[in-house]
């Protein structure tokens, strides 16, 4: 697993790679919490290289989305691989987690 976080002023870009194990999820949650503490309210998750996600990972994304909504912020998930996309569809979370396609186009919306 690899979490790549880029500090772009308008939003936070996370690139999630491979798969998220228990330690990775804790690390991801900590990074999100830290950024929210400093006022970040827009998060873009590039999941084009994330080939596995479980309910624990989804729970963190749901929790983050709920918290961000309180501050008029939100997160988006961009370019899921087929298996992860199926999982999001199965959980009926595509809309809530704002599934998008095309990283460049998505980023343009924030700038």
């Amino acid at each position: 697993m690899k979490i790549v976080s880029n500090n772009i002023p308008e939003f936070n870009l996370f690139e999630l790679i491979d798969r998220l194990n228990q330690d990775d999820l804790i690390e991801l949650e900590n990074q999100i919490t830290d950024k929210m503490k400093y006022g970040s309210k827009y998060f873009v998750f590039d999941i084009s290289k994330l080939n596995y996600l479980n309910s624990s990972g989804l729970r963190i994304l749901i929790k983050t989305q709920k918290q961000l909504k309180l501050f008029d912020g939100y997160l988006v998930l961009v370019d899921p691989m087929e298996n992860v996309k199926s999982l999001l569809e199965l959980s009926e979370l595509e809309e809530f987690l704002k599934l998008r396609y095309g990283l460049k186009e998505t980023i343009k919306d924030f700038i």
Binding site: N54, S55, L58, R59, I62, K63, Q65, K66, K69, L87, L90, S91, E92, L93, F96
Partner: peptide
């Protein structure tokens, strides 16, 4: 899965949902 928004639902149960659906 009764049409409630995610905000209204309990977050737990997702894992069980996946097991039953898959």
């Amino acid at each position: 899965m009764t049409g409630k928004s995610v905000e209204q639902q309990k977050v737990g149960g997702l894992g069980i949902h996946f097991v039953k659906k898959l």
